[in-house]
Design a protein around this nucleic acid. Structure first.
Length: 198
DNA sequence: CTTCAGATGCTCT
DNA sequence: GAGCATCTGAAGA
């Protein structure tokens, strides 16, 4: 299936966030196995205007350096001391903006993801575990074995082991929009309707 | 189903 | 030293 190229990410961040819903996120592991999941929830972060963005007002530090990378770069950071968040850098190089991947559902090789999450196969998951499989940014990164070691990966190069394929676009009526989660500190940006989900 | 405390370490002031 | 784009398990309704 066709890999999304740099042109896909080099656009308005809100458009990319909405357009990522239904796409297939592919994770190839060291041992040659490959997992796929369908993206179901995203959020946009736009440093130019967004107090919730790590790179608000073009703030450039060691951590935010990745946000200034070319579109189609993976921005992965540690949060709350023990979880990771996966983002895709958007817009033209030098514009610090990204889309946070907040949720997905497994498509192929879900057993590998389930092992990473719960140390068991999908079949053996409890109903509670099924309901809370990949429905959060930290859960997604745990399932796909993503850590800061993958920060800066080129999503347009399949050799990096992390990329996105066309997938199946959802019906427009299936797309929901709301305020973003977990950014109470961000003043007026708290209310920006920049979260998209199926 | 709900709320809630605690975990844990990096980042920036 | 404070705060964080979160998650889990325990406990109660």
């Amino acid at each position: 299936m066709e890999i999304l190229t740099k042109d896909f990410y080099n656009r308005d961040t809100l458009a990319v966030a909405r357009d990522l819903l239904g796409r297939e996120l592919v994770r190839a592991l060291e041992d040659g196995t490959e997992t796929r999941c369908r993206i179901t929830e995203t959020e946009a972060y736009i440093g130019r205007v967004d107090k919730a963005c790590h790179a608000y007002n073009y703030r450039r530090t060691a951590r935010t350096e990745t946000l200034f990378a070319p579109p189609g770069t993976a921005y992965i950071y540690l949060i709350y001391g023990m979880y990771h968040c996966l983002n895709f850098v958007t817009e033209e190089e030098g514009e610090p903006a990204a889309v946070l991947i907040r949720g997905a559902v497994p498509v192929t090789n879900g057993d590998i993801i389930a092992e990473n999450r719960f140390g068991r196969k999908m079949e053996a998951m409890t109903s509670y575990q099924r309901k809370n499989f990949l429905n959060g940014p930290g859960k997604l990164c745990e399932g796909l074995a993503l850590t800061r070691a993958q920060n800066g990966l080129d999503l347009t190069d399949p050799a990096g082991g992390l990329y996105v394929c066309q997938g199946t676009p959802p019906a427009p009526s299936a797309i929901h929009i709301s305020e973003r989660v977990g950014i109470d500190y961000a003043e007026e940006a708290v209310h920006f309707p920049w979260r998209f989900y199926l």
